[in-house]
Write a protein that binds this DNA or RNA. Structure first.
Lengths: 206, 206
DNA sequence: TGTACATCAGTGAACGCGCGTTCACTGATGTAC
DNA sequence: TGTACATCAGTGAACGCGCGTTCACTGATGTAC
């Protein structure tokens, strides 16, 4: 609590600051760019100080990956909340579902390296479940579609796998710039094509 | 050409053997597992000998990634060729298209680590274009669908992006075991769901 | 309110390992005459 | 057919760096009495 202008010996919230800096490294260069020594230097602390708060690099990576997933989920939620309310419940549910996918893809293309970090598996779990959780955001949007009758209840789980696969697929393809030459000329058009395709695949025949 | 039983001083085809061993490492542990020193030891040669044939690690990785993509394409082709010929051209085209996707996913789940290596970008290109090329295999199967009228010609490029995204998406999700808990319970069922979804999204309304 | 002491949170230096890469070299091979 | 010599393809040792991690330590903080 003491706020001496010169850095106090006890930092106060080193763990949070280290995690923040680690996320910064992952944002800039992906999971492999997280470097404990550079991290310590950035934060202004000796390398060994970090070990007071974190078991080892894998533990830190589990936290970084979780932070990345939560930011992904937050981007999806922001998209959903930005959707206005028309009178039509069906259209609103569809718009929110699409916004979920658009948010996912936007995060992947806008924060490519952090997106990669989100799926990094250090071999140990984070301290708590993801909150918010991307899978739950998707599930919620899909539940809405079922409620308003756009997706048949019996096809709910099929639809979720389909939607997730297509959206995750275009995201990783764009993020890794794979096939961007041969198959994908215009990224924006590709995204819209995928979203239309998902809708066609998922919507119950009227 | 001399076939002295004891290892001859001149190896003969070191480059090919080294590449083969490197692909073996990638198959076992992904792109990061490719290790020049271990490689040299495996092949029975000193580390520096490798540099007679390969510029640096990145160059080798470009070749490994290419080999992985070609194996992926070969798996797709094998699936296509295993499809029997019925009388119906439409059904055959559809079956071959599905076989393409199934081959892709089978490679991703059967050779997870090598699949990851296929999309590794070392920052320098391989010496020659991929042959066979996964993108071309997909394109050929899709062209067939257009020919028999299952896919509208105007929607060809949209369909290819959609199909590739969905198939690549389920492949990476299964390969990285992401979401396997929350969304994907039965992998086989998930694969079929995605393939059905792609067909629904891609097929022209009859 | 003051003092003794356990505990927490840092420092600074160094260890140790693995890995890509380089260097000076030597053995084998092919070609000109 | 034999010899001289350039060239190719290896060896073996070492460099150098970066990185995660550990160790003995010291400074700050909180608590019991």
């Amino acid at each position: 609590m003491s706020v001496s202008s010169k850095r106090p010996y006890h930092h106060g919230n080193l763990k949070a600051v280290v995690l923040g800096a680690a996320v910064g490294q992952a944002r800039a260069g992906g999971p492999d760019a997280v470097n404990l020594r550079e991290l310590a230097h950035t934060v202004g602390v000796s390398p060994s100080a970090i070990y007071r708060h974190i078991r080892d690099r894998d533990h830190l990576m589990a936290l970084v990956a979780q932070a990345a997933r939560q930011e992904l989920a937050a981007t999806m939620l922001a998209g959903v909340e930005a959707v206005g309310v028309s009178g039509d419940g069906r259209l609103d549910a569809i718009a929110r579902f699409a916004a979920t996918g658009r948010g996912y893809i936007a995060f992947a293309t806008g924060s490519t390296q952090l997106f990669r970090a989100a799926f990094y598996d250090p071999g140990c779990p984070p301290d708590a479940p993801d909150d918010p959780d991307p899978a739950q955001v998707l599930t919620a949007a899909l539940d809405e579609l079922v409620e308003v009758g756009v997706v048949a209840a019996a096809e709910r789980s099929e639809a979720s796998v389909m939607a997730w696969s297509a959206v995750h697929g275009i995201s990783t393809l764009l993020a890794e710039r794979a096939l961007v030459g041969p198959l994908i000329v215009d990224p924006e058009a590709a995204i819209e094509a995928v979203l239309r395709g998902v809708f066609k695949a998922v919507a119950a025949p009227t």
